[in-house]
Write a protein that binds this DNA or RNA. Structure first.
Lengths: 177, 177
DNA sequence: TAGAACATGTAACGGGTTACATGATTTG
DNA sequence: CAAATCATGTAACCCGTTACATGTTCTA
C-alpha cells in the first residue's frame, strides 16, 4: 500500500536499464550514453550518486565488489514499483532552454559579422548531428531497433531538419554574406 | 585589462535588459517572461538572487528603496563589460533534455493505450503552443518586432510544427486510435 | 473593509557540473 | 616498465525549484 519512493527522471532511467540485468555504475553510464544520451544528458558523477541514493532507499542492492572496485547493482521489487510509478505518471513538463536564441535576441548588440559567424557555427553543429542520426538510420539494421527506439531517432532527425530549415530562412543580415 | 567576471546566461540576460534603463527585480521578471520566457525559463527567486550576486560583484548597483521595498538596479561599466564578454563568447552548448522521449523509449513497459494517451496529451500541449505563437505572429504588428525578435518567434513556430509532424507520423501502435 | 492579487524577497532542497583522487589495465 | 587510458568514485560548487513570509495595493 505504501507508495513507492518518487524518483527523478535520471534515477528512473537507471532503474529502467537495470530491469534486464544487474549492472555496475560504469556499465550504466555507457548504456545511458548510448541509448538516451541524445535527449537526456548525464555524467558519471550523477550515476554514482543516484546509485548510492537508490541503494539507501532500497530501490537497488549493491552486490559484492569485484575487481577494480567494480560493484554490480540489482533492482529490487521496490525499485520496479518506483520505476513503474514514474513511467505511469507521464513525462514531466519540458523545460526549454536555448542559449542560442538568447544570443539571437541580444544580437543587435553584436557586430553583425560576429553574429552571423556564430550562427554559421551553430548551423554546422546541427548539420553534423543530423548527419550522424541519418547515418544510424540508414546504415544500421532497422530490425535491430524497437519501434520505441525508432521513434526517438525519428524525433532527432525531424528536429535537426527543422532547425537547419530555420537557419536557412534567416534574413541575410543574420545569416551573413 | 582585468577580465570581467563571468556570468551565466540568466544573469547575462538580466544585464541585457538593464542596458535600456534601471529596473527593479519584479520588472525584470516581467520583462524576461515576456521576451525570453519561451526559450529561457526563470523564476523570481533566481532573479533576486542573481541581482544580489551581481551587486556584490559590482555588475549592478542597487538604488534607493522606493515604496513597497522596491529597489531599482542600475548596470555598471563592469556589468556592461561582463555582458559583452558573455555575448561575444557565443551560446553555451545546448543541453537537450526531453522527458517525453524517455517515456517513449521505455514505452514498451507501459500498456499501449496508456502510452498513446500520454502522447496525445503531449501533442495537445504542443499544438496549443504553436497556436499561441502563430497568433502573435499574425495578429501583432510585425513592425513592432526587431528582426532578432522575429527570428526567435520563427524558431518557436518551426520547432512546434516539426514536433506536431513527428507526432502525426508515429506508428499507429504509439499514436493510438 | 475584507479578501484577492501584487510585489519583494529569504531559506532550503535537488540535482547537474566540475574538479579532483586513485587504483587497474592496456599499450608503446 | 613508463605513460596513457580505463574505471570507480568523492567533494564542492552552481544554479534551478519549491516553499514560505510579509507588506502593499486593488477590488468587490
Amino acid at each position: 500500500m505504501d507508495a513507492p519512493p518518487k524518483v527523478n527522471s535520471t534515477a528512473a532511467s537507471l532503474l529502467g536499464f537495470l530491469h534486464r540485468q544487474p549492472m555496475t555504475g560504469w556499465e550504466l553510464v555507457q548504456t545511458a550514453r548510448r541509448t538516451i544520451g541524445d535527449f537526456w544528458s548525464l555524467t558519471p558523477s550523477q550515476v554514482y550518486r543516484e546509485l548510492n541514493g537508490m541503494a539507501a532507499a532500497g530501490l537497488v542492492e549493491a552486490g559484492q565488489r569485484g575487481s577494480r572496485e567494480r560493484r554490480p547493482f540489482t533492482i529490487t521489487a521496490t525499485g520496479r514499483a518506483a520505476f513503474r510509478a514514474w513511467l505511469e505518471a507521464g513525462p514531466s513538463e519540458e523545460t526549454i532552454r536555448m542559449p542560442m536564441l538568447l544570443t539571437v535576441l541580444f544580437g543587435e548588440e553584436l557586430a553583425s559579422d560576429r553574429l552571423s559567424a556564430i550562427l554559421r557555427h551553430q548551423r554546422a553543429l546541427h548539420a553534423a548531428r543530423l548527419a550522424a542520426y541519418e547515418a544510424v538510420n540508414t546504415t544500421d539494421d532497422r530490425n535491430r531497433r524497437t519501434v520505441y527506439q525508432q521513434a526517438t531517432l525519428d524525433f532527432g532527425i525531424t528536429y535537426e531538419r527543422a532547425v537547419l530549415a530555420w537557419f536557412d530562412r534567416l534574413p541575410r543580415g543574420l545569416r551573413g554574406g
